[in-house]
Amino acid sequence: MDPSLLPDNPYLLLTPGPLSTTKGVKAAMLRDWCTWDDDYNGLVQDIRRRLVALSGEQTAGYTAVLMQGSGTFSVESVIGTVVPADGKLAVLTNGAYGNRIAQIARVLQIDGEVIDFGEVAQVQAEPLERLLQSDPAITHVVVVHCETTTGMLNPIAEVGKVAKAYGKTFIVDAMSSFGGVEIDMAALQIDFLISSTNKCIQGVPGFGFILAKEDELQKCKGRARSLSLDLYDQWATMEQYNGKWRYTSPTHVVRAFYQALLELEEEGGVEKRSQRYRENQRTLARGMEQIGFQPLLPREYQSPIITSFYYPDSRAFTFGEFYNRLKREGFVIYPGKISAAETFRVGNIGDIHPADMIRLVQAIERNIFW
């Protein structure tokens, strides 16, 4: 089917994923695939190669693993497979997604320590260094790169430098940043990086992926605390059987993700996409401030992925009514997720452009009711 013949969406998804996708990505899902077919498995292998190529300048020794489910499934596959029974995990958190990693560790009965920086402060390396000095039993360090609870971008370079100085395995949840913010795994000394199809690469939900140092992944055989989320076994099967997944794969999602990778390349790669997202965010923030909305984060902490705004100081304002008015105008936004303040969030990623942000601000100005 010609992608141009597909109907337009009734609204733009201004969320951190799922997000608005191109007609080309949608059209890619109109064909059925067999999971045993060589053509399909060759597609999987090409996706894996392309993901590794996006991981930085020096890609030798890195590999990619695809894992069914939402992004959290991939996070749990890493935490549950990579940390050995006698290991100990340090979790740096400043929002809901760092807290979720800590929860995963507790459910899996993995020993650990949590350094909580609150919801509106960046993660810092100094408390981690103090913890590693006082607790040599810690073997692994994990941090969220872009904490979409607020839109905070955390300084993973500084955290990784400390983690590796003390010989720890360094894990980065780059769920909402990979593909939209330039990341060089080798330069940042990242051992395991986790992301998902329905974020900055602009695919649809259905699987996540892990980029890993192959020698670190090799150490994980037999460690997994789950059958279906065994990261090592998933990787070994894909390696041995040329892209075959252990269990039924989301074939249509895989094909759509391949198309999304091609479109990322056509746009000019991560550098050009990052420029578009940053311009989206700047356009949104300027416009919102001009009509009286205050951003939650200072500019130096703000990611290009999602922006949080305080509710207006008005008894008449309710998020539900605000949401519904904007939806009727063709925009879907996100509720807030912090406990310290009443906020809402606007995603800056997906098939979204600065002109869309201008239209959104105009729609918000028409629908202000305070």
Rank of each mutant, 00 (worst) to 15 (best):
D2N: 13
D8R: 08
L12C: 02
L12M: 07
G17E: 07
P18H: 10
P18M: 09
L19Q: 03
S20M: 13
T21A: 08
G24A: 11
V25G: 02
K26D: 13
A28L: 09
L30G: 15
W33C: 04
D37F: 00
D38N: 13
Y40Q: 06
G42D: 11
V44W: 01
D46K: 14
R50M: 06
V52A: 09
A53W: 06
T59S: 15
Y62C: 02
Q68R: 14
S70R: 07
F73K: 11
F73M: 07
F73G: 02
S74A: 15
V75L: 13
S77A: 15
S77Y: 03
S77T: 05
V78W: 01
I79Q: 01
T81C: 00
T81P: 06
T81N: 08
V82H: 00
A85L: 04
A85M: 02
A85Y: 01
K88V: 05
L89Q: 08
V91N: 04
G95V: 03
I101V: 13
A105E: 03
I110H: 00
I110A: 01
G112S: 07
E113V: 08
D116S: 09
G118M: 08
E126G: 11
L128S: 09
R130H: 11
D135M: 12
H140C: 09
V142D: 08
V144A: 10
N154H: 02
G160D: 07
K161S: 13
K164S: 12
G167C: 00
G167D: 06
I171N: 06
V172K: 01
M175I: 06
S176P: 09
E182M: 14
D184Q: 15
D184R: 05
D184K: 12
M185K: 06
M185E: 11
A187D: 13
Q189T: 09
L193M: 10
S196P: 12
C200L: 05
I201L: 15
Q202E: 06
L211T: 01
E214G: 08
E216F: 13
K219L: 07
R223P: 02
S226D: 15
Y232W: 15
W235V: 11
T237Q: 12
Y241A: 13
N242K: 13
G243H: 01
T251W: 03
V254M: 13
R255W: 10
F257L: 10
Y258V: 10
Y258F: 14
Q259L: 11
L261T: 06
L261N: 02
L262P: 00
L262Y: 04
E266L: 09
G269E: 08
V270C: 13
E271K: 14
E271H: 14
R273C: 04
S274F: 10
G287Y: 00
M288V: 00
Q290R: 04
Q290D: 09
I291K: 06
G292W: 05
P295C: 01
P298I: 05
R299P: 05
E300Y: 12
Y301W: 12
Q302V: 06
S303M: 08
I306W: 00
A316P: 02
T318Q: 15
G320N: 11
R328Y: 07
R328D: 10
G330I: 04
F331Y: 09
V332E: 12
I338A: 02
R345E: 03
R345G: 03
I349E: 00
D351T: 02
D356Y: 04
M357P: 05
V361T: 03
E365W: 08
R366N: 14
N367C: 03
